[in-house]
Design a protein around this nucleic acid. Structure first.
Lengths: 196, 196
DNA sequence: AGCTTTCTTGAGTGATCGCTCAAGTATATA
DNA sequence: TATATACTTGAGCGATCACTCAAGAAAGCT
């Protein structure tokens, strides 16, 4: 008996994610969302409940996308290959709403104003870091990374390097590509444990 | 004939900087500022003109403070010593409003909503990077860093590493101290140009 | 003391914020 | 075709936003 929604909810979340990613939490008003999603206030609230709730969906979708891209990369190029290519990939694609990581932007913006959302973003960052650690372990098992390193330590540093890269990529006048290449090079050097 | 202001404008800018640093641009309302500065709307606007103008003053003061701290460090411990100590210093001091860099937070938050302020923050980041490069050159002149490296390249990477460190330090459950130590260690390794 | 000049006060501006809800419209079943 | 059940519309809610300004208070000068 009922009537079907005139929109594809999943596609709307994608569009909302891109808008939030580019403009941040406070920088995105409901008017912006209504315009971008083609929804009137009533439909918006019927579909998502609140700005908070939609932001959380967007955050989850963002994280899911990042995880998928990295796993695909590993499936095609192996663990080390993925870790080498990922930095270049995240700052690539001019089509993307922003270079900086949406999760990092969210933690920085909302840590002192919306703890639940900041905590969720932080949790996503942690599971990405766990995925990095898994890949480093895979690379060690494959003999591409020296066993003398601790995979969790490598992952922590890799995550930090990526975050720095992506902040740098957001800046004007910084050659982020060069930084991405340096991070990739370092991955290749991990085969041999040289010092300390 | 006139009456003197009841406040020390310079001290107010310090307090405003700390509030903006912690809460960001949109997260800091005029009510927040009035409360923190102990100023009524009229006095606020007589003193600073606008939220924008005060934020700019805060940004400049923040950058000036960072520059001074690094130069002091270099005067006491030499160029390489300063570069080694700075990462630990910026994530230290529990008294600080935030671990993350206020300039980076500003670029990320305001790039698409307040270009002038974002550009100013970015310019401050660039001059910090120039200062890093100068220190690397000093360290090379002192024989502490191999001449095989390009100082500007080292500075670009150092800046990116610092930004990543400071985003990481803002996260919950990340051992930022360990990352800072790794960055410092890498400085010591620059004395010898090993490969590539 | 008296005058001038500035600073301080705080109620109040229009605009925008996230959000609500009653009324209207479209669709799937019977 | 009639009815039930959503979905859509959009005016408008109270709260808050950055900001203004007229009136009053205080300090430096003569």
């Amino acid at each position: 008996m009922p009537r079907k929604p005139a929109y594809d909810k999943n596609a709307l979340i994608d569009r909302a994610r891109d808008l939030f990613w580019k403009q941040g939490w406070a920088g995105t008003s409901l008017k912006d969302l209504e315009r971008t999603l083609g929804l009137n206030p009533g439909s918006f609230y019927a579909a998502f409940g609140s700005k908070d709730a939609l932001f959380q969906l967007a955050l989850d979708k963002y994280a899911e996308g990042g995880t998928k891209r990295l796993k695909d990369l590993a499936a095609e190029h192996g663990a080390l290959g993925a870790l080498q290519r990922y930095p270049g990939l995240v700052i690539d694609e001019a089509s993307k709403p922003a270079k900086a990581c949406m999760l990092a932007k969210t933690v920085l913006e909302l840590k002192n104003q919306n703890e639940p959302l900041a905590a969720r973003a932080n949790a996503h960052l942690s599971s990405m870091e766990n995925l990095f650690a898994d890949l480093f372990r895979d690379a060690q098992a494959a003999g591409n990374v020296s066993d003398a390193y601790d995979a969790d330590t490598l992952a922590r540093r890799y995550q930090s390097d990526l975050l720095g890269l992506r902040v740098s990529a957001e800046r004007v006048g910084v050659d982020a590509r060069a930084i991405a290449d340096e991070i990739a090079e370092r991955m290749a050097e991990l085969a041999y444990h040289t010092d300390d």
